[in-house]
């Protein structure tokens, strides 16, 4: 019958019209600035640098190894190594980045820097409201702007952050055990050397050689 379809269509739109006032699942609109949909855990925008503890400079995990700088496809990372050293999370002395800049106007959010980092130091942020009135300086982030605490990392990517923490704790335990074993071995050797003073020189040499083996073991896991 001619016109039947039109009436059916009118009924359908009327149902939608009335339904949008009563049913919550019909209205999927999220009014963005006031309310916002929760971000999926895997969402990512631009990288940031993780630090442990409360002081961003002391706790920074980055050791300025420059792997990310070299791997970055659009070359948006710039790193300058420091001259002095500071202890990392295992207590070992490491160099740190004197400058660490990311130009987020160049960054393409590929996450390659995160994948190559052997020190779990660089991670992806979920902050996307980054508009600025200065399109050159305002989009070039230095290490202070990039530094975020490990707690913040936990708040945006909880699963991933716990995995990272477990891995780091595991490594720290391993490193501690190794150091302990080394220390005990050294002590035993020292005791032996005390017994036979002529062998003292080789024992101290092996004790010094111990820390240099550590970075190699860390790199192999990445």
């Amino acid at each position: 019958m001619l016109g039947e379809g039109i009436l059916k269509g009118l009924a359908e739109t009327a149902r939608n019209f009335a339904g949008s006032f009563v049913s919550k699942e019909r209205m999927t609109t999220v009014e963005y600035p006031e309310e916002r949909a929760p971000l999926p855990e895997a969402s990512r925008v631009f990288p940031f640098l993780v630090y442990d503890g409360s002081d961003w400079q002391a706790g920074m995990r980055c050791v300025a190894c420059q792997i990310c700088e070299k791997e970055c496809p659009p070359k948006c990372i710039y790193i300058e190594k420091s001259k002095d050293k500071k202890p990392d999370y295992t207590g070992k002395l490491q160099i740190y980045p004197a400058r660490f800049d990311i130009d987020i106007s160049v960054c393409m959010s590929c996450q390659i820097c995160v994948e190559v980092c052997p020190f779990e130091a660089i991670k992806m942020d979920t902050e996307f409201e980054l508009s600025t009135t200065d399109r050159f300086g305002g989009l070039l982030y230095d290490r202070k702007q990039l530094a975020r605490s490990n707690e913040y990392y936990h708040s945006i990517h909880p699963t991933e952050a716990s995995e990272v923490d477990a891995r780091l704790a595991d490594e720290k335990a391993k490193a501690d055990a190794k150091a302990k074993a080394a220390a005990e071995a050294a002590k035993a050797k020292a005791a032996a050397a005390a017994a036979t003073p002529t062998n003292a020189a080789p024992a101290t040499k092996s004790q010094l050689a111990q820390p240099t083996a550590d970075p190699a073991s860390q790199e192999s896991k990445g």
Binding site: T13, N16, F17, G19, S20, F21, R26, M27, T28, T29, E31
Partner: peptide, 13 residues
Amino acid sequence: KGIGRMQNRLGPN
């Protein structure tokens, strides 16, 4: 507003 509601949108607000 009306067409927005028919399409389950809010319309200008």
